[in-house]
Amino acid sequence: MDPFLTSVLSNIGLFSFLALSAWLLLIGGEISFGQQAYFAIGAYASGIASAVWGWPFAVALALGTALGAGIGALVAWPAARLSGVHYAIATLAFAELTRASLNVFRYQRDIDGYLTGPDGANGFRDIRWVYEAGIAPGTYLAIIATLLLLVIVLIWLAARLNVMAQLRMVGEDPILAGMQGIRVLRWKIGAAAAAGGVAGLGGALFAHMATYVEPAQFSVMTGVHAVAYGLIGGLGTAIGPLLGVLIDVGLLESLRSLAAYRMIVFGGLVAIILILRPRGILDETLVTKVRSWARR
């Protein structure tokens, strides 16, 4: 495959993890400006595991995912009692705290004569497992796509088992949800754990593709983008956030001639979409219509 296309598609895949992560929380009724923190945690943890400790790639991915989920739940445990702006800013504070801590986090070991590991603000280079294993970019893209598909299938399964419906109820009206016998706090913490896990997995994949990560990559801007993807694409289904990513990365990569005006075009486009469809392109109204049509 064309290397340019491969890299664009890989980027779309990686951002999709982040967008899905923010979307899960949006469904649960909260905005998180801080999902980039779990992306970073996944990236660093899996990078350390494979590059410094020499663990196999799959185990490193699992570690990134698990750590993302665990820390997500741990942060949500106090934060889920907040809501609205408070929750949004609390998540942002945690993410910036994570980034600022990575700026001073040093953990380097001598691996084959090279100092390897995170080096504070200088970043973390030589996460080379994928290259040393001789995995081609095309193959790696397939790995990303497969794992992304796995996440989407899991979400779809959750929807079949009414899990998503209960999360949506918590998101729409936590008190009314409580009156239906739903354990609201548990759902909120559960959603945060799932979202942390998805972001952690994405971060782990990102680190192994880029081979180099640095704290500055996980800034507020990244987190706000992740939220915006879901809001543009629509909150009705898990396809929404992917559509958001596709519009941003895909459309604008293809308009290379407009590269200098990229954000101006994208910003204007998004503003217009949101005026016409305030709950995103694939909103609940559309999804409900399609469902009822499919049921006939």
Binding site: L26, I31, V224, V227, A228, L231, I232, Y261, R262, M263, I264, F266, G267, G268, L269, V270, A271, L274, I275, P278, R279, G280
Partner: peptide
């Protein structure tokens, strides 16, 4: 939520 996302989009515009 839409207003917030939209103000973010305009932010990107203004900055660029």
């Amino acid at each position: 939520l839409a207003s917030m996302a939209s103000s973010f989009a305009l932010w990107m515009q203004l900055e660029q």
